[in-house]
Simulated assay, not measured.
Amino acid sequence: MKKFILLPAAFAVSVMFAACSSTPTTTSQLDQARGDFQAAQSNPSVAANAPLEFKAAADALDRANAAAAKRESLDEIDKLAYIAKQKVATAQEAAKAKQAEGEVANAARQRDEIRLQARTAEANQARNAADRAKTQAEQAKADADAARAQADAAAGSAREEQAKNAALQQQLADLQAKQTERGLIITLNDVLFNVDRAELSPEGMRTAQKLADVLMQEPQSVVLVEGFTDSTGTSAHNLDLSQRRAESVRNALIGLGVPAAKIASRGYGEAYPVASNSDAGSRQLNRRVEIVLSQNGAPIANRR
């Protein structure tokens, strides 16, 4: 739609008389016409919906302003101003009517769109309900399959754990482990070392391997290797020998894969005997290395 760029007649009059010192002729009727025109001009709907009527109003006001500028009679000015006012009112009413027609047409379109949306929504709801039913059935099947798989896995894991625990208990039984307040204690006797030496014998290394296998299955365990001797020889020699034998067992376990940080060693010499040292058999019992295994990472209590 073609738009008209209009210069308000009141502004045209003011420009016309800007250069002269005399006051232009005007009337209250003309002032009202100018005010009505400015109000219509500030309303975008008037120019958009009634462009021809608005152009006629502008032309009529220009004629009234021209008559005032020429100082024609007040009656003539009022007559032209009245005509301008009427044409402004006509433009405003035409704009309102055109806008109302648009609103009615738009309302009809909205009703049609709402009906279409309602029908579409009903179809979508039916389709969504069918999709949900299908999804629920598929999910129920998936849940049942998952529950069955989980039960199978749990049963398999339980059987595996039971087998693992049984094997571990058998290994501990083979090593003659004993449960005490300090933890499990495994005793390596004197025959696993060469006479008066700290190096493990081949049989001692095989025993160390069994012990390492157990410790590798107990990742949270804390291990203390304690060495002891009989009362033969000096106390200093016995203390040194017991410490070296405990350290030898620790090094063997580390070499077999047990983390060094979890193993400590300590020698006690002839202290804490388990027999009287009065005969060879008793003294052999006192010459030993004890491995204390504290389960679940609990600290090992000191000897009392």
Rank of each mutant, 00 (worst) to 15 (best):
A144L: 09
D75E: 13
A158E: 13
A130C: 03
E247K: 09
L184Y: 09
N238P: 07
V15N: 10
V222Y: 00
K178Q: 14
A264H: 06
L188G: 11
N251Q: 15
A147K: 14
R182N: 06
E290F: 00
A33I: 04
R111G: 07
G156D: 11
A100Q: 14
Q136M: 11
E199K: 09
L285C: 01
L239G: 03
S221W: 00
P8V: 08
V274I: 14
R159P: 00
D152R: 13
E203P: 03
A264T: 13
A89Y: 04
A67V: 04
L253M: 08
R303A: 12
S278K: 13
N65V: 12
A280R: 12
G269K: 02
E93V: 12
R71H: 08
T207F: 06
A137V: 11
V46W: 00
A126N: 09
R288T: 02
T27G: 11
Q169G: 13
R287V: 01
A39F: 00
A275H: 06
A33H: 07
Q176K: 15
A146N: 12
A107C: 06
Q217Y: 03
N124R: 12
T187D: 04
D31A: 15
K3C: 09
I77E: 01
N128R: 13
R244G: 00
A212G: 08
V13C: 09
G257A: 10
D230C: 09
A50K: 01
I114G: 10
Q170R: 15
V104E: 14
L215S: 03
N106T: 11
A19K: 13
N189M: 07
A212K: 10
A12L: 10
I185V: 15
E218P: 00
D190E: 14
T90A: 15
